[in-house]
Nucleic acid binder design. Structure first.
Lengths: 207, 207
DNA sequence: GCTAATTTGTGAAGAATTTCACAAACCGCG
DNA sequence: CGCGGTTTGTGAAATTCTTCACAAATTAGC
């Protein structure tokens, strides 16, 4: 398959969210124009994005809401339940451990890890914090698809190396550093300080 | 000034972070090549990004670490302290209220708001939750630069309308929706479910 | 069943971003 | 002070992403 741009995938996620909204309201079909209006883009963009994966619409009519949302779920790989661990039992890890948005979309948090001996064994939300040293062994018994990294920046790369060595191939990173991983590992970084700096730039360099 | 791409601004943030790291290690100068290696980009990209704002390097030598980080702080508007409020006293709002990364970079959380009468007046981290209805009035007394939105998706747009009406021109949005705002308001959205779906897509559509 | 009104799917054009490649500038050393 | 070794700054080329624009397909009305 042709390489799909990251921006396209992000928009597919958005489209799916809006389709669910329209589905909830009982709408049967939707045009690329309506979908675009809801998501702040253009109808051509919507059609182009979808065209990478097939032809899902009916000319003159638009898209069937249930069909298109099913197709998007399939494309995004949301048919199965993904198993997620959280590494780093701090504030952010805590907020994520029970974030409803994860569960709702098929991402199941199965365990929380930390390298700090003082935290290992303690209660953390509804989890008992496990020792990072046990990760490799645990994974053999119950596989993990995605690791969420919520440790301080200084140790993030080290932790990621461990996680990759244990065989995990997808990482959601909350530490404010650029992580280096092998080509077959996917990383998404959420960097709140960077977003704030983007706002600071915008406020400073208006017009 | 020529319009600066969002991707450029994001990289400037990263460069600044790495410069601070190098500064901490006492390095006096750095080449575009070294900066690029640390940040997972190319030296040409680094030089091009910087060239939009001026010529900060010395040929044959590289960039002075303290000078360049000073310039970047200036460009990004980090010279002043930005006043931030958090709207939505839930889990995410709580994790953010004391996020050290904010403070370290000059973003000061001054208050936490919520529309839920049950929460107004209660202690929340070290803040007392204020009523959204009071926002406009409060802002007249002590100005606010940036609003962090950590409310449920269903009410996010309504809350943002209030915030914009109160005169705030920069928004960091954690609700999983595309917000609609006037042209002179900047919005950055952090959407964790979307990032996870990006990973799901990558895992599903490997080669 | 014909016509007018929609809306898709997609090549081609256009815009934006990244990479290339090289002259110009600078340092250090003898 | 001149030479060899670096590294910047930047037009031009290459690539990637978005928008345009229109034929083809479909529906609805009559």
């Amino acid at each position: 398959m042709k390489r799909i741009a990251e921006s396209t995938v992000r928009r597919l996620s958005l489209y799916l969210r809006y389709l669910e909204e329209f589905e909830g309201r009982g709408l049967a079909t939707i045009s690329s124009d309506e979908l675009a209006a809801r998501g702040g883009t253009t109808s051509a963009q919507v059609r182009k994005d979808l065209s990478f994966f097939g032809s899902f619409g009916k000319r003159g009519l638009g898209y069937s809401v249930p069909e298109l949302s099913g197709r998007l779920r399939e494309i995004l790989g949301l048919g199965k339940e993904w198993r997620v661990i959280i590494v780093g039992a701090g504030k952010i890890g805590g907020a994520l451990a029970h974030y409803r948005g994860f569960r709702q979309r098929g991402f199941l948090v199965t365990a929380v890890y930390d390298a700090d001996a003082a935290k290992v064994g303690s209660r953390f939300e509804s989890f008992t914090v496990r020792d990072m040293a046990r990760l490799q062994e645990d994974i053999r018994r119950e596989p993990v698809d995605i690791a969420v990294i919520s440790v301080p920046a200084e140790v993030a790369q080290r932790v990621v190396d461990d996680v990759v060595r244990a065989g995990i191939r997808a990482i959601l990173n909350f530490a404010p550093v650029q992580l280096h991983v092998p080509d077959d590992v996917s990383v998404k970084t959420v960097n709140m300080a960077m977003e704030l700096e983007g706002l600071s730039f915008a406020l400073t360099n208006r017009d």
